[in-house]
């Protein structure tokens, strides 16, 4: 089945699998600097996929998206995060989830669920799109899982940004990129979001003397 596909589609599927793998690696990683490195690798794979799709489809504006992804996701955001982590002096803290095994099992269950949701699309489209849609949906939901399972602000931001990688991957692999104006707007939003996250690290540290956002629990509907 797989060897009947053209070489380029096989490559895309391989890259998709690698993106999914990095998502799981993020989910399992508890040290913050390696976490940021894995995130940068994920950005690099997404950028490579974009370049590959651009080459194959002959849509040259996608090269532009690939460069944008490379600069933003593989270089700027990881660089910014790493710099902030070192400046805040939290590079040796434990950032892991409380029950890593449960989280990984839940992640596997999410991937199966995504394939189940993408199943109906099969009748209409080639198997490669179905796979890439299922995988990018998995990456998005694994990002959400990472967000909810971690208690440190930096790990949450990495989860958020990896979720965004999943979205970008979906746009590139399943639909050959969004219209240019949309891609530029999304990239702009991501850039601003990364900067605001950076600002927030300092606000949070100033208000609770740590970056453990589980301590941000004053506002709730509990009776005092």
């Amino acid at each position: 089945m797989l060897e009947q596909l053209p070489l380029y589609q096989q490559l895309i599927l391989t890259l998709a699998a690698m993106v999914l793998f990095t998502s799981f690696a993020l989910l399992a990683q508890s040290r913050v600097i390696p976490m940021i490195r894995i995130f940068a690798w994920q950005g690099l794979i997404v950028a490579a996929t974009t370049a590959l799709v651009a080459y194959d489809s002959g849509k040259y504006d996608l090269y532009f998206s690939a460069i944008l992804a490379l600069l933003l996701k593989a270089m700027f955001v990881p660089w910014l995060l790493q710099r902030l982590v070192i400046r805040l002096g939290i590079d040796h803290d434990e950032h892991g989830a409380e029950h890593p095994v449960t989280v990984l099992m839940a992640g596997a269950a999410l991937v199966i669920f995504c394939y189940y949701v993408a199943q109906p699309i099969e009748q209409f489209s080639s198997s490669i799109t179905r796979n890439t849609i299922a995988i990018s949906m998995s990456v998005v939901l694994l990002g959400v899982l990472m967000l909810v399972s971690r208690s440190k602000a930096v790990a949450e931001v990495v989860g958020f940004m990896s979720l965004e990688n999943g979205l970008f991957f979906a746009a590139v692999a399943a639909t050959h990129g969004m219209p240019m104006v949309v891609e530029l707007g999304v990239a702009f939003d991501v850039l601003i979001a990364a900067v605001i996250f950076g600002v927030f690290f300092f606000h949070i540290r100033d208000s609770i003397q740590s970056l453990d956002v589980d301590q941000l629990n004053h506002l709730s509907e509990r009776e005092e």
Binding site: T129, I133, S136, M137, V140, G143, V144, L147, A153, E156, F160, L163, E164, G166, L167, A170, A171, A174, T175, M178, V186, A193, I196, F197, F200, H203, I204, D206, S207, I208, V213, L216, N217, H218, L219
Partner: peptide, 27 residues
Amino acid sequence: VEAAWKYFIVCGVGIALALFGTVLLYF
């Protein structure tokens, strides 16, 4: 700060799901 962080994360994730919906719509 707590309210703003919650706002950012919850709305950020929500709106990211909407982007995924938009990608599917475009697909």
